[in-house]
Design a protein around this nucleic acid. Structure first.
Lengths: 101, 101
DNA sequence: ATCTCCATATTGGATATCCAATATTGGTTA
DNA sequence: TAACCAATATTGGATATCCAATATGGAGAT
């Protein structure tokens, strides 16, 4: 099993995944982590997810639109939508035949 | 345009792509580069593709099965098939709803 | 108020990814 | 043969990706 991941470790595309996950509704960092865990099998480290979120906010692809207590909710900005759109097209062109059933 | 890629640069998954591309027929390094170029929009550098191929050979996921002159043809080994299978499943689980038209 | 829990955040470092530049090698052509 | 070209290969370095460990800060409980 780790024999496989050591050959082909499926790193990358974290920022793409984050943008994709929040595209419909805004979520907190913990909720985003949870959703990533569902997809990848394990939760990303705090040291992975929070810097990534911070960076996306800095680059104005995400905004923080509400904070109930300590929880911050992240949502796509107009720029974020644009970026996600572009990235999704690119993604589909690269991997167009991988998902084919 | 580079505004977009600077936010979400779609790095990664090169080894997965390579395995995916040679899954049906063995190809030379140049042909693999060509196919990647079709998908990603630009050809990977020699300094990117050849070390990646070498590494996959070292890890016994690819084998070199014929050389007509300088061209080496790479094809999946049984282990490579296994790895690709595992990686494809993982990929589909992570991105299951991205390609959904 | 103090304690505890949990989401958030930061730091440092290991590894991966990729490119630019350059070198090598084998086939082809003059 | 020498010159040339294209595929392959290597080196060095910039950046990205991610984790382990640790810190901060707010909310609720005791």
């Amino acid at each position: 099993m780790e024999k496989h991941t050591s050959v082909c470790d499926m790193r990358g595309y974290l920022t793409f995944l984050i943008l994709w996950i929040v595209r419909k509704k805004s979520l907190s960092g913990a909720e985003i982590s949870e959703e990533i865990a569902k997809r990848k099998g394990c939760k990303p480290n705090p040291g992975t997810i929070y810097p990534a979120l911070k960076d996306l906010v800095k680059k104005k692809a995400l905004s923080i639109n509400s904070k109930k207590g300590k929880e911050k909710c992240y949502s796509l900005t107009p720029l974020g939508k644009e970026v996600l759109d572009f990235a999704t097209k690119s993604f589909c062109k690269i991997f167009y035949d991988v998902m084919a059933r």
